[in-house]
Write a protein that binds this DNA or RNA. Structure first.
Lengths: 244, 244
DNA sequence: AATATTCCTTGATTTAGATCAACTATGACA
DNA sequence: TGTCATAGTTGATCTAAATCAAGGAATATT
């Protein structure tokens, strides 16, 4: 029996896309997980994991938004990742993490004990293979962000961030732009994600509003009115930005 | 038979530390690799892989230094990784890369065809497991660099870079500081790694020389005279910086 | 409905680092 | 041993974004 394990394909029975983690979708070899499944919820603002914590579980984010962040002693913080629904939290083979995971909105996780999960990996090579690919995907994202943090201007950073949100929104299978999007973070959090200050984020968003690239209906809800202009503003290759 | 696959432990018969990749050290199940092993060499400055290239092999870097870099259309570049001896190049399950790999010095790679290597992974779960861990290690490094790029000052960036060099030098098993180190990159390359300009790198290195933290015998060869001061200058936690 | 808090905006000012511009040291190579 | 190219230095100037400072708008709390 071959299953597309840990794919990003949405499971028809539950909101989780990582099918190996989602017990609803498990194949014969994954039945063991069913018994270990548990849901955890966190309130907006709650810490999910602190830097240095011992990891006892791996999880799939079912609902909500969480951030991975690093903080320096003097308070400077840098987000190193953003977790949206369907994202995987876990470091198979690792017992510690080197950053904080914080719930930005109310968050629901579908959790599995780490030990049995690792036992599963140890016995099923194609699950392990899929996990390598997932880790490499995350690595690609991290490296793309390194280019952003090291070399992009404030405007390019903001444009890239919005562009990424649009792309992720459409991964789920929704149709093309011109539809309402939501900023999942406050402007201060966006600033921490982009290596900027909140004032700069406000000014740049304001400028894009004024230029007619974005249109806000609400403090958080907006549309991309001029997608080509948005893509141009990212500074990325002129080819790679098409939807679909 | 249990082998410490893909560990960073140095093989006694060759300079490669990833034992699964180093055919000298292979166990029974790895004999297949012996036949596929081949060495490739590159001159300083040679491209090893271009962004978008199809990957036909995985490899271990035996000798020399190479960089992983991203370049924007207007020429801005950001290095997203540094490959030193014992580092692994390869993306099992991935056929393309999204950055350039360039030899900084003369480079020797120990290469294996990707397909047979992936077949090996598919049949031996603990190799796959080790690869997950390696990818997660790289991810940790990338995220540490995100903090550096997004939030650290020029001085902190330089100090962190030197600090990292010292740490890596000592991973091999050498004794404590106060010994000659070599900058593996030009100041322009360091600038591209740290999200700075070459002038800023020059000025900051000059300042640390003047302050008696570093001492250069040569343009490239130097010693860390005041390691505590170096560590302090990184801006990192006051605890985590000890050698050993 | 009034009050407090959190989030966002906008302006004035400062500054770290970029940019521009010579110039110097170091090898490399003929 | 001199010429060339590459790498590094050093100074003057500029600027993007940070910082400082005040308000204002939305949301939550009483």
């Amino acid at each position: 029996m071959t299953i597309d394990l840990l794919s990003r394909t949405k499971c028809s029975e539950c909101p989780i896309r990582h099918r190996a983690v989602c017990a609803h979708c498990s194949g014969d070899e994954l039945d063991v997980l069913e018994q270990l499944k548990s849901y955890k919820t966190f309130k907006a603002g709650d810490p999910i994991l602190w830097r240095g914590d011992t990891l006892t579980f791996v999880a799939s984010l079912v609902q909500g938004v969480a951030t991975l962040g690093k903080t320096m002693e003097d308070g400077r913080t840098q987000m190193v990742g953003l977790l949206l629904p369907s994202d995987f939290i876990g470091r198979p083979g690792r017992s510690q993490i080197d950053f904080d995971v914080v719930a930005v909105t109310d968050v629901t996780l579908c959790c599995f004990q780490r030990k049995p999960f690792e036992a599963l990996i140890a016995s099923t090579p194609h699950v392990a293979q899929r996990l390598v690919e997932m880790a490499l995907d995350e690595l690609d994202v991290a490296r793309e962000w390194m280019l952003l943090l090291g070399r992009k201007t404030a405007r390019e950073k903001i444009a890239t961030f919005i562009h990424m949100l649009v792309q992720r929104q459409h991964l789920g299978g929704a149709e093309i732009a011109q539809q309402a999007l939501v900023l999942p973070l406050t402007q201060e959090q966006i600033a921490n994600y982009l290596g900027l200050t909140l004032e700069t984020v406000s000014r740049q968003l304001g400028a894009m509003k004024k230029e007619g690239i974005l249109q806000f209906s609400d403090r958080r809800r907006f549309e991309v009115v001029d997608f080509p202009a948005l893509h141009l503003a990212t500074g990325d290759d002129s080819d790679g930005g098409m939807l679909v």
